[in-house]
Amino acid sequence: MKEFFTVAVLVGIAHSGIRLAAPYLFASLGEMVGQLSGVLNLGVDGIMLMGAFAAFYVVFMTGNLWLGLLAALIVGALMGLLMAVISVTMGAEQGISGIGLYLFGLGLSSLLFKTMIGSVESVSGFSTLRIPVLSELPIIGPIFFDHSVVVYLAYLMVPVSWYLINRTTLGLKIRAAGQNPEAADSLGVSVNGVRYITVIYGSAMAGIAGAALSIGLLNVFQENMTNGLGFIAVALVYFGGWRPFGILGGALLFSTVNALQLWAQVLGLPIPSDLAVMLPYVLTIIALAFAVRQVRQPAALTKPFERGE
């Protein structure tokens, strides 16, 4: 057996963990905004698949990565619009409409893939951007400053989301819509209008999360390539207690443990692989139960709002 706790391995684990967390960050931070305003969107995985396909297809045809990212954003937003019409305007049960949206996205992305591309292909996606000077730093450099552009973008979304929620009027309205929609309404906030914005925004982020996979990290598209990643992203919102930095912590914990178990396997530690794969899931639950200070969920989460008479 090889040495496990060497600097190189630890750097490798941290580096992997940071990269693995990126798609979760996009999806979870978007979902968080929706939930803060009172809408639970369980369809993230389906939206991610649509985003992943849209981005991949555009890059496959044009080679323009930013156009691909934009396509994912638009397709994600459209899926969000559908979710908003059904869950906000029509006040549908959010748990079930989310599952419907998931199935729809899963099916449609595969169908489009089959008819428009037909076989697994690859594109050249966002490449690694070594940040000058900083990436030369020992340990810190290789861990933090040696990633794909989409990874930096994902981490940039953490403070941006924090600012949006805590320092803008819109953020205030979002939280009001999720905590006490009646009061918000009486103060002249259009609760459902705010919810439209958040759901569409969150879904656009989920679309980007899919693009981060298909044109950022993997550079291929395959049917159901997310394999349930979107559901983990929803779970991480609860882990993070609807706070951007909490979600960052959750995503990093989950991803780093996942990286750890991969490294443990790669270096031949004698653990059955099935049990190693379980590790991040088990630890996430334990960490939330015993280590993380928990926050009450937005009072109006999953409750549609309709103006009283």
């Binding site: 580096h15 693995l20 798609p23 993997l218 390539m225 490294w263 790669v266 270096l267 794969v277």
Partner: peptide
């Protein structure tokens, strides 16, 4: 030669397979 082997625990987890590849490369 060192033959490093990892399993993802799934046939379809494309993202984890990608990270496994990254891990192997780092190793």
């Amino acid at each position: 030669i060192a033959v490093n082997i990892s399993y993802t625990g799934s046939f379809g987890d494309t993202a984890l397979a990608a990270e496994a590849a990254n891990t192997h490369i780092s190793a």
